[in-house]
Nucleic acid binder design. Structure first.
Lengths: 117, 117
DNA sequence: TTTGAATATTCCTTTACAGGAATATTCCAT
DNA sequence: ATGGAATATTCCTGTAAAGGAATATTCAAA
């Protein structure tokens, strides 16, 4: 997995831009207005998003229409799939067994330790 | 969506740590060794991952065993789901129609265009 | 109680990056 | 050709963050 995608999304205004673009392509000025930021900052953030491959541009007269690119989201989805067993909290039985054992030993160390039957 | 998750994953070594922990809980020293980084840097990165909620610790004697927490991955999955139509490239028909029109005009502008010159 | 192993923290330096302000560029209409 | 709108770029400054080195802390065992 490329860290550039995470890096691009780690800036709040850029994440907001991405979420805005989910609703459809937008122009720089529209993005700046909706996010209440200055146009140069919008352009800079869009440049980062562009270089990270998260968006693409289309020149229309003197405007630039930015839209999301599917690829990074596909990659992200693939990457996240590796963690599916984790976030579904479906570990395999061995792990669950070991975790319970370990929890019990934790209990023992923090208690007066009455011998178990 | 919280940007802290993306921020935590935007650092290459931290992403490597997360991918290591997918295979199971690990101790600081083991992580440092496998990633070939120094122990203090491993501790620092783990601290960031801890504060972002991506991992949790369990103290075992003088060791600390770090493991992934499911929650952030669940959130990430939920967030990504909003983009599913996008990365599956299933736009509604109007968008597809407009995009094809635009591609055609792009082709034209990049060709010799007999009428010009 | 001392020792050594594992880990955390602090201090320092360097670098990356975000916002502000100003300016450059590009395009259409006139 | 010129002016104005939309956008990009540059320069500046402050700040966050990463790695290196050294040190502090914590724990178990002897």
């Amino acid at each position: 997995m490329e860290t550039t995608t995470f890096s691009a999304l780690s800036e709040p205004n850029r994440l907001r831009i991405v979420e805005l673009l989910l609703l459809g392509p937008l122009t720089v000025g529209e993005i700046a207005k909706r996010l209440d930021i200055r146009q140069p900052q919008a352009s800079k953030h869009l440049k980062v998003l562009l270089e990270s491959g998260l968006v693409e541009v289309e020149a229309i007269a003197n405007r630039r229409e930015y839209r999301l690119r599917p690829e990074p989201f596909r990659q992200l989805t693939t990457w996240l799939a590796s963690y599916r067993d984790l976030w579904e909290e479906r570990f395999d039985n061995l792990d669950i067994y070991l975790k319970r054992l370990q929890d019990q030993s934790n209990d023992r160390t923090s208690e007066p330790t009455p011998e178990e039957s």
